[in-house]
Amino acid sequence: MSRRSFLRGCAAFGGVTALAASLAPLRELGDYTNTEQFLQKYYKELTPSDMTKVITRIEGEVERQYGIRPHVRDLKPMDGVEFVYALNLTRCIGCRKCVHACVKENNQSRSPEIQYIRVLKMPHGSMDVEKGNHNYDSKQVPEKGFFYMPIQCQQCKNPPCVKVCPVNATWQEKDGITVIDYDWCIGCRYCEAACPYWARRFNFTKPQIPKDKINPDMSYLGNRPRKQGVMEKCHFCIQRTRVGKYPACLEACPVGARKFGNILDPNSEVSYILREKRVFIQLKEEMGTSPRFFYYFDK
């Protein structure tokens, strides 16, 4: 063997070893994906029998991971229903009970913490969110001189997040709820940049939920556990509202500041509020997003 070919051999061997060493962390990939997940079709292209298989897969995964067999459904929007949320700023006391009820209902990651609702503590008289305090830690709420403004996905009629998604992984359903197919999202976070309400959250790592905190009543487009690397956000508790229940945040509110219902039904509470209140506010109306989330005041 000549000196040159020996050296070449050494270099090639060293190169391959170094490549293998640099890829070593991949051994921990674990259940990152599998063939079935990798090849899964887009939500809107799944036939009912495809969907049954997907749901069985998800139920199996949840059971393996959390030791509890969930009930996953693919709930469709109801006819003649368009959901609207109305929030009474005069009543809200900033207790953040809605935030925690939401986390519990929707199987949000506890570590790192993901929350869909952000409550701003605002000085009297201004609707400028930049004056809001996100991290207030008061012994007692409400504090004098402040009002509280909970903000979550505004379920816009013209959602910028839907427009920018390069793969149609997020879209607006017939009942006005903007949903995400967690199995289709590529995690580019363009929607997060586009949202004027900072309503979207990204799973920067594998979400952690204690086994005994899992809510087993799940829906495909709603609160089933998410994977690392995908977006999520408020979906008006699709697993509850599409079967005629109120969202968890509404039920948790101790002062009745939150109202939810079908705007197409003239007798609903939200129809009454939007008809009768002299002033209500769509946050950042100038964005042209036309939110289905309204803030209003008592006299």
């Binding site: 060493a21 640099s22 070593a24 962390p25 990939l29 790192p112 920067f204 790592t205």
Partner: peptide, 16 residues
């Protein structure tokens, strides 16, 4: 290769 190694770590643990 150092970059590839760092990326492999990112792939496992996520963008955190």
């Amino acid at each position: 290769l150092l970059g590839l190694n760092a990326y492999a770590k990112q792939l496992v643990h996520g963008l955190i």
